[in-house]
Amino acid sequence: MANTPGAKKAVRKIARRTEVNKSRRSRVRTYLRMFEEAISAGDAGKARAAFIEAQSEVMRAVSRGVIHKNTGSRKVSRLAAQLKKLSAA
């Protein structure tokens, strides 16, 4: 348990930051799900629009420090591969 005033303040800050990061992570997952739904529907135009939005959200999360840079790049790369596969079909 936190005893010093500084440690207690750190606990409060961590709790606030956790809430913010949780909401940002949820937002990213929402956009990823929208892309997955567009891919499964087979609509290339809708999937392309969803890809652009999902890519933007993932990179925004990377810049805010919610997810690691390499993780974001990997996710975007896999989304692009799915989109390319759909467009080729």
Rank of each mutant, 00 (worst) to 15 (best):
R48V: 00
P5T: 03
Q82A: 07
R74D: 05
E57C: 06
M1P: 00
S77V: 02
A44K: 11
S73P: 00
G6P: 04
A38W: 13
V28M: 14
K75C: 06
D43I: 08
V11F: 09
R25K: 13
S73N: 12
R16E: 09
R60Y: 13
G72C: 04
A61L: 02
A88G: 10
A61S: 05
A49K: 09
K46P: 03
Y31H: 08
D43V: 06
S56M: 02
M34I: 01
T30Q: 07
A61H: 03
N3L: 14
I39H: 09
I14Y: 15
E57W: 08
I14D: 10
K46V: 10
K84M: 03
N21P: 10
A41V: 03
V66C: 02
R16N: 07
R74H: 06
A38G: 07
S87N: 11
A44P: 06
H68E: 15
E36F: 06
M34C: 01
R48Y: 01
S56I: 02
R17N: 12
G72Y: 04
N70C: 09
V66S: 05
G42Q: 08
D43L: 08
R74P: 02
S26W: 13
Q82L: 08
K46C: 01
F35D: 01
R29C: 00
A81P: 07
A61Q: 01
G6D: 01
Y31C: 00
V62A: 06
A44F: 09
P5L: 02
G65D: 02
R33Q: 14
A89M: 10
E19A: 14
R74L: 03
L86Q: 07
G45E: 12
E19V: 11
A44I: 13
T18V: 03
F35S: 03
T71P: 11
H68P: 14
R24F: 00
M34G: 01
A54Y: 05
S40T: 15
K84W: 00
S26Y: 14
A50Q: 09
R74N: 12
I52M: 03
N3A: 11
V28Q: 11
A47L: 12
V76S: 03
V62L: 05
A38K: 09
S63F: 13
A7R: 15
R78K: 13
S63H: 14
H68R: 14
E37M: 13
A15S: 03
Q55L: 05
K84I: 00
A10E: 11
L86A: 07
V11K: 08
R48G: 05
Q82T: 02
V58Q: 07
V11I: 08
R12A: 13
R74F: 02
R64V: 00
A80G: 07
R29Q: 10
R64H: 11
R16Y: 04
T71Y: 15
R25T: 05
S56H: 14
E57G: 02
I39C: 02
K84T: 06
T30W: 01
A54L: 04
F51D: 05
E37R: 15
R33M: 07
T4F: 09
Q82Y: 06
A50P: 01
R17E: 11
Y31V: 00
A80L: 12
T30D: 05
A50M: 07
E37H: 15
